[in-house]
């Protein structure tokens, strides 16, 4: 409780706060608290009904409150516990992975499977540029051929391979 009370009473608040903001459990608790609040607010807007005839908001409201309360406890405990700081995030893999999926999602319906796959692979490889010069084109070629055969022809996914070709 020491760091939390020092945080409240104003003793070295900046150190306590910056330490708190790095604690895994404190941050995990905050995340659960946040999700709990969103669920509670959304649930409260819906009809509640009674235990016998539950409305759509009956369970979301109660679940959200429970999750929020648990998140609060976890966050509080994170302040009291031993120092367990959050490890650093790696920006490049995050950006590469997300950009790959977003690119695929935006391209798949307009350009078809092969360009969308190529976009995903190239974007994803931003996180790891090593390898021989011809590796990336070969990878794109091989993988789009494989997914084309499996999903377009094997599983009959209704999607173009190229813009306007394949259906």
């Amino acid at each position: 409780m020491s760091s939390f009370s020092s945080l409240l009473s104003g003793h070295a608040p900046s150190r306590g706060l910056s330490r708190a903001l790095r604690q895994k459990d404190f941050l995990a608790g905050l995340l659960f608290l946040l999700i709990g609040i969103v669920v509670t607010v959304q649930g409260a807007e819906l009809a509640q009904g009674s235990a016998q005839r539950m409305g759509p908001g009956y369970l979301p409201l109660r679940l959200g409150l429970l999750l929020g309360a648990l998140g609060f406890v976890i966050a509080l405990r994170g302040l009291r516990g031993a120092d367990d700081p959050l490890p650093a995030f790696a920006p490049l893999p995050i950006v590469a992975g997300t950009a790959g999926l977003l690119g695929f999602g935006f391209a798949i319906e307009t350009t078809g499977l092969v360009p969308a796959s190529a976009l995903l692979i190239v974007a994803a490889r931003v996180a790891s540029w090593k390898g021989a010069r011809f590796e990336l084109p070969l990878l794109v070629l091989a993988l789009s051929a494989i997914v084309g055969v499996i999903f377009r022809y094997g599983l009959g996914l209704p999607v173009d391979l190229w813009p306007g070709w394949g259906n």
Partner: peptide
């Protein structure tokens, strides 16, 4: 990993041909 990511994307898309699922 590009192959795994691609299979994730296309597998999810194949559920209902909805790009929103990929996002």
């Amino acid at each position: 990993y590009p192959a795994i990511l691609l299979f994730c994307a296309i597998g999810v898309f194949s559920l209902s041909s909805n790009p929103a699922d990929v996002f």
